[in-house]
């Protein structure tokens, strides 16, 4: 399926959502709730929180589809960004912190070698749907450990550059460079997978 066609549909749906069309919201939800929910679940770690945040994301789409800026990327990129931000916000809320369990972010302890134990490891063992996903998943897997760590801390845990620097005991500049290299590596693995 071509990305362009998918994007066209998403753009049309957002346009209709902006105009208050609930049918379009239902379609948009059906197209993307799986991805968005899975991403949120990965960040917040608990099903009830993940469901609440997922609903929050799509209500935000409903209320502010007009704030989608098509010059910055695809509707899906926008949706993913909104979902990540709201999920990370949730992990920082008082309510979340007071109830955090071992399945939450705290399970993500960095061990001495800088690797991850707990949830990340178990996620890795779960089966993954489509062939494309398998390629992508192994792409993240194939990142070298220091790169995966930095993607983990910034993308999934939402830490700022300076927080990561503090945590890893290195200069902020190093964090920036390493993140850039990590994404470069990820990108080249993905290109390789496509051809």
């Amino acid at each position: 399926m071509s990305d362009n066609r998918e994007q066209t549909i998403d753009r049309l749906l957002l346009q209709l959502i902006k105009e208050g069309n609930q049918a379009a919201l239902a379609s948009f939800y059906d197209r993307h709730s799986r991805l968005i929910y899975s991403l949120i679940l990965r960040i917040v770690g608990r099903v009830p929180d993940a469901e609440e945040v997922t609903q929050e994301v799509f209500l935000k789409v409903w209320r502010s589809a007009g704030s989608f800026d098509s010059t910055l990327g695809s509707p899906l990129a926008w949706l993913t960004t909104v979902a990540r931000r709201l999920a990370i916000d949730r992990t920082r809320s008082k309510h979340y912190k007071s109830e955090k369990s071992e399945t939450g972010l705290d399970a993500l302890e960095i061990d001495d070698e800088g690797g991850f134990e707990g949830q990340v490891a178990s996620n890795r063992l779960e089966s993954i749907g489509t062939a494309e996903h398998r390629v992508l998943f192994s792409a993240v897997e194939r990142l070298s450990e220091e790169y995966r760590l930095i993607v983990e801390l910034s993308y999934f845990s939402g830490h700022s550059h300076s927080e990561i620097a503090e945590r890893l005991g290195c200069p902020v500049g190093t964090v920036k460079t390493r993140l850039r290299q990590a994404l470069g590596q990820l990108r080249s693995i993905l290109m390789e997978g496509k051809s």
Partner: peptide, 26 residues
């Protein structure tokens, strides 16, 4: 970079939220 960020999300194990969520949302 935004597209890469989508691909990262797609690389996760995927699961569906409960059907109740869709009802509530609508």
């Amino acid at each position: 970079l935004y597209e890469l960020s989508v691909k990262l999300a797609q690389s996760l194990p995927q699961s569906d939220p409960s059907p109740q969520l869709r009802e509530n949302l609508l």
